[in-house]
Design a binder for these strands. Structure first.
Length: 288
DNA sequence: CACTTGACCTGTCCGC
DNA sequence: TGCGGACAGGTCAAGT
């Protein structure tokens, strides 16, 4: 669920909330939380100051003054929530989806010198944090093979089309979800974008014309920008760095709207399976 | 290499 | 009400 817009929203929040703060302690309850440095976390982090918060694809990169970078993947249910000196409980007028922290899904707590804290919650435990020397981050396997950022100004429609050449025999949905083609697209925005381009998700890549790809590219950028503006999508677990929900789901055209009318033609939206993923589409607008 | 499927987890929801 | 099973979806490993 955290896809590019959600991770970017968390990044923006963290940039404002934790840059300049100095780490005083790190606690974690399972070695799986830091798979590459489980026993050495303190020496890499305690006493260091957060100097920047970056994003690449769905990865959050928190740069520390020690020239180490905390790399975090939220996977499906990960949350990074900052709390200042007041630890809001449920019902606090801050619109938080979550209550008092830590809670039972909390896996890592990063404490700062001033008493504020950053909580890494992850109900399904698929997410992770790893520490790398900042200069080594571009050499992480994932970073080397991940595709371009779809909202990069230098990324052109021609570049976009060329990224799909390797995947011409698969469905356009599987290709969009492939992080080595284009970075940051997940199940929610893949469905939204394919509806926007009037493409059936099971359409084979080789069947799609260049002009159609240009429309798809435009829709991809439109949907991702709109989603960032709305603070991402809260389907179930996603919250931003303040624990608040995103509102894109209210604007979604097909995602999680099976049984409802298509906003374009009023045909009932269906949910099918494509690329082993739940897939929402309008059977009238998006034909094979 | 291209492509698909299963595994990793836990909470929720649906049907019996 | 309880209980089993399907489902949720990002990524990688293992399979064809």
């Amino acid at each position: 669920m955290p896809e590019l817009p959600e991770v970017e929203t968390v990044r923006t929040g963290l940039e404002r909330l934790i840059v300049g703060r100095t780490v005083s302690a790190v606690s974690h309850n399972t070695s799986r939380s830091f798979p590459n440095v489980a026993t050495e976390v303190d020496q890499f982090m305690v006493g260091t100051t957060v100097v920047a918060v970056r994003r690449r694809a769905k990865l959050l990169l928190i740069d520390l003054s020690s020239e180490y970078t905390l790399v975090t993947h939220l996977k499906m249910t990960g949350q990074l929530v900052f709390r200042g000196d007041q630890n809001f409980g449920a019902g606090h007028p801050n619109d938080s989806l979550i209550g008092e922290l830590p809670d039972k899904s909390t896996r890592v707590v990063i404490s700062f010198k001033d008493g504020s804290r950053l909580y890494f919650n992850d109900q399904r435990k698929f997410g992770w944090m790893m520490l790398y020397p900042t200069v080594e981050v571009p050499n992480i396997d994932f970073m080397k093979k991940v595709g371009p950022e779809p909202l990069d100004e230098s990324f052109t429609p021609q570049d976009f089309v060329e990224r799909f050449v390797r995947r011409k025999n698969t469905s356009i949905k599987a290709a969009l979800l492939d992080q080595t083609v284009v970075a940051g697209v997940g199940n929610i925005y893949a469905d939204e974008v394919l509806w926007g381009a009037k493409l059936h998700p099971a359409t084979k890549v080789f069947e799609i014309s260049v002009s159609k790809f240009r429309i798809l590219f435009r829709e991809l950028q439109y949907v991702l920008r709109l989603a960032i503006e709305k603070g991402g999508s809260t389907d179930r677990n996603y919250v931003n760095a303040e624990g608040k929900k995103g509102s894109y789901i209210e604007f979604a055209r097909v995602f999680r709207r099976e049984g409802q009318p298509c906003p374009r033609c009023a045909t009932t939206i269906k949910k099918i399976r494509v690329a082993s993923r739940g897939t929402h589409l309008c059977p009238n607008c998006q034909k094979l």
